[in-house]
Write a protein that binds this DNA or RNA. Structure first.
Length: 326
DNA sequence: ACCGAGCTCCGCCAAG
DNA sequence: GTCTTGGCGGAGCTCG
């Protein structure tokens, strides 16, 4: 089992502190056995104040960092010397000494300030909460800050943007460790979308020389932009410059579902968005997201979420809600 | 609710 | 020997 140790520092943000335990804890192998063991530690094993109106009691002190395969620095709003000069408190610095040389280092939100101040991020790309990106860049000129992504994967060092992107990052790590299928299972247990790769590149991966050409990422972006068209497997494979067989194989390995499953999911997602935010007729929406027919949209929505398009719109808008046009 | 033509998915396997 | 590729075929699915 892979051991994940979460370090909770003073004024930790409870939401973010809970993310690793929840997501890694949801990662199971085919027989349902947990793939990660999560422990939470604090300096001196002391009670930790949170950013909210309560404190947390942990079971471990910083020595728990020593046998961690992965160390997660939970969100802590930078204060004092860290905020002003980018310097770590002596006790935090000492605690980080326990981290093994091969441990993977992960930060959520402003936890990246700690990693940067400790020098781990020098010469690397990293991200942090967008509201802190300028301060971060000013304090740590040796770090290349990306403010426009959900997370950055530098291999042994991974940083995520604000709050919920910590979930995306943890899922990404599970995907890296155990494949997309396992990661999707964890996402399902957490009742969270297994894949957020919006319009822009929302994460940056360490450029692996061979990985870039073999990935279906570019084709997914391309397909996303032409949802309304009738895309066949051949179209996708051709765009990716792969045989159909290789494309489907890669796709499943990377995303954990088949190309058409993914495409349908996207279509439904977009249809829901339009149902929520516009008053367009179902027929128009169906065509817009690539269904030839409104009945097809109904069939798929029924199958995937058990709701008919109009009743989805109704529950979302509430009754009597005036509708503004598209 | 059902049906058939066509498409998709994936195990298998030979080839690189 | 190990890993990847891609054609084949049939089971299963999708769409009209």
């Amino acid at each position: 089992v892979h051991r994940v140790t979460v370090l909770a520092l003073d004024r930790v943000v409870p939401f973010d502190l809970g993310i690793p335990a929840r997501v890694f804890g949801a990662a199971r192998d085919a027989d349902g056995r947990p793939l990660y063991e999560i422990q939470t530690c604090a300096i001196g094993g002391a009670t930790v104040r949170t950013s909210s109106d309560y404190s947390v009691v942990v079971d471990h002190d910083e020595r728990a960092l020593a046998d961690a395969d992965t160390v997660v620095i939970a969100t802590q709003e930078p204060e004092g010397a860290l905020r002003e000069e980018g310097l770590l408190d002596a006790e935090v610095r000492n605690a980080l000494q326990h981290v093994g040389p091969d441990a993977r280092l992960v930060s959520i939100c402003t936890g990246s300030f700690v990693l940067a101040a400790a020098g781990f991020l020098d010469g690397r790309e990293a991200t942090t909460h967008w509201g802190w990106a300028d301060r971060f860049a000013a304090l740590f000129p040796k770090v290349r800050v990306r403010a426009d992504v959900l997370f950055v994967d530098e291999g042994r060092l991974l940083t995520s943007a604000g709050a919920a992107s910590g979930i995306d990052l943890c899922l990404h790590i599970v995907r890296r460790d155990h494949g997309a299928e396992v990661a999707n299972g964890a996402a399902r247990r957490c009742v969270v979308a297994p894949w957020r790769d919006g319009g822009q590149a929302q994460f940056v991966e360490r450029p692996l020389p061979d990985h870039a050409e073999t990935s279906t990422a570019a084709t997914r972006l391309w397909a996303r932009g032409r949802l309304g068209e009738a895309l066949t497997l051949d179209d996708l494979a051709r765009h990716a410059n792969m045989s159909v067989r290789t494309f489907t194989r890669r796709f499943r390995a990377e995303i954990g579902m088949s190309p058409t499953q993914w495409l349908q999911r996207l279509r439904i997602e977009e249809a829901c968005r339009l149902l929520e935010s516009t008053a367009l007729p179902v027929e128009t929406i169906a065509h817009h997201v690539g269904f030839t027919d409104a009945t097809l949209l109904r069939r798929h929505m029924r199958a995937q979420m058990g709701v008919a398009p109009l009743s989805y719109r109704r529950t979302f808008r509430g009754p009597g809600d005036a509708v503004a046009g598209a």
